[in-house]
């Protein structure tokens, strides 16, 4: 069980939205994490490497900043099944770039722009994720 946290989730979500809006205002780019992280490795097609690297560093240090300023314990539970997590990581990485975006690029930025492509993509990944968890927890694990 995890606690239902509507207010914290709404505030956190608004911060994610604000970051996406500010990135558009600053350099006119979509805040899609798969697009940003997927271009960290070569080949480099444009000169935005420093921007992308900076954004990723910001993402990575966020928990450290949170713990050292706002404090408070952070609930965090990750599977320690190494083969499962390697496979999941590879599939998430490949699928998100192959499908032109992930939860941020399609789910947040795309839906906000009322993009038909992002609506299709978000519908597909949400549906498959729901089915996958149902299968893993209630068919295999049940």
């Amino acid at each position: 069980m995890t606690e239902f946290t509507p207010l914290a989730s709404l505030i956190g979500g608004a911060m994610i939205g604000l970051s996406s809006v500010l990135l558009m205002a600053w350099e006119g780019r979509i805040a899609g994490i798969s697009g940003i992280a997927g271009r960290l490795l070569p080949p480099y097609r444009d000169s935005a490497f420093a921007s992308r690297f900076g954004f990723v560093i910001g993402l990575v240090i966020a928990p450290l900043i949170y713990l050292s300023t706002l404090g408070g314990p952070v609930e965090h539970t990750v599977s320690s099944n190494v083969p499962l997590m390697v496979a999941a990581g590879a599939i998430v990485g490949f699928g998100s770039v192959w499908g032109y975006g992930c939860t941020s690029g399609h789910g947040v930025c795309g839906l906000s722009r009322l993009s038909a492509r992002s609506m299709v993509a978000t519908g597909v990944f949400m549906a498959v994720a729901f089915v996958t968890v149902f299968f893993v927890r209630h068919i295999i694990g049940g």
């Binding site: 599977s79 990581g89 998430v92 498959v128 994720a129 996958t132």
Partner: peptide, 15 residues
Amino acid sequence: LIVGPALFGFGWGLG
């Protein structure tokens, strides 16, 4: 746009 998100959703549901 179908295959990518389907794979992504599967991996997301696993991990």
